[in-house]
Design a protein around this nucleic acid. Structure first.
Lengths: 186, 186
DNA sequence: TTTGTTTTTTGATAATTGTCAAAAAGTTCC
DNA sequence: GGAACTTTTTGACAATTATCAAAAAACAAA
């Protein structure tokens, strides 16, 4: 689904605004394994995923930790860097060939200013992402490794085919070995 | 700090808007231990904390789990219920005598509509809360109990005096006994 | 102060998950 | 198909954290 269509599902987008979004955003095709943003860089773009899978990850004690996955119709960015203007603490990387729509920070701020209705879109999208994060906290806070895995199986079954075990394990906050064992005894 | 002052630190608030916010919000004084929202209710209010401490908690397997704390100059609400209009999954309760400013959902939506500049405030506040949640995820995902505790000591030292050990422990995703032991060997 | 209540600490033990190493299975590419 | 590489699984063991129970400490009320 295109970015415009996605936004239209939140509030109606005028012809003028649609044209403006078209003119300030750009389509990007990237192969699997491509790094969009590296640690330490400033992440000045928001990527809307039309097709493909992207993840954000960082290193802790030499170990790779997946912070999030983003798939079709979701946005990918180092949120902290994008919003706060600080260096990114994570690597953003494609896990599959991707078709993305890129919108940079300056253009987005201009949209907010010139098309006040986009503020509402921004707010609502952020609210929804907030709720998703909150759910993840509930899961990480007191659920066992097995419960977290089963929850993921229910909520994002396709992801299990699309990402590697190690990537999924670290996303769930457990080691790959533990996840492998959880899968074994079912 | 008052709600108006807090909002002014984000964008400038016009006289008219200030008057409007005044007229739709109301001050609430509550004693320690008061329940603002209970599980299953719809949370239709946003509470800005002028003085005092509030927490959100739920029960898992009979155990009380603190989901968040909110103190002076922060907002308290069951975000999920407030935004999605679904029943709250948590109890919101004062941990100290509180002075709050209450703004209800309908009034807030009217503000958004009649004063488009408030959309921006809403977006920015949500963005900032999102970043805070993200930080907490990083902590819960792979840090040890000790590391999580020390991080809290650095970021919110006063909280340790204001909330009980059990409340803090569950917030960190550990048992009270473990937290007690962590504190002991320093 | 004394009594009753709640919170925190301590101890013994069990369960969960991590670590390190190596084997097995699956992929990729010539 | 087979070599080289990557990913997943398995095993033995260690570390971390939870559980349950009880003692100690802190707090509140009469």
């Amino acid at each position: 689904m295109s970015l415009i269509k996605h936004l239209s599902s939140i509030i109606s987008i005028s012809q003028t605004l649609e044209r403006e979004i078209h003119s300030v955003s750009k389509k990007v095709s990237l192969p699997k394994g491509h790094t969009l943003i590296d640690i330490g860089e400033r992440c000045t773009s928001l990527f809307f995923i039309e097709t493909g899978l992207v993840r954000g990850h960082y290193f802790d004690d030499g170990k790779e930790i997946t912070n999030w996955f983003a798939q079709e119709e979701e946005f990918a960015t180092c949120f902290y860097s994008f919003i706060a203007g600080k260096p990114a603490f994570e690597i953003i990387q494609t896990l599959e060939d991707c078709e993305l729509t890129e919108l940079n920070y300056t253009s987005l701020q201009k949209l907010y200013t010139h098309f006040p209705e986009t503020e509402r879109i921004g707010r609502i999208i952020t609210e929804n992402y907030y709720i998703k994060l909150e759910e993840r906290i509930l899961s990480l806070q007191f659920k066992t490794a097995k419960e977290r895995y089963h929850k993921l199986v229910l909520s994002k079954p396709e992801l299990l085919q699309r990402a590697s075990l190690g990537q999924i394990a670290s996303y769930l906050g457990i080691t790959q070995e533990t996840l492998s064992r959880i899968r074994a005894d079912l």
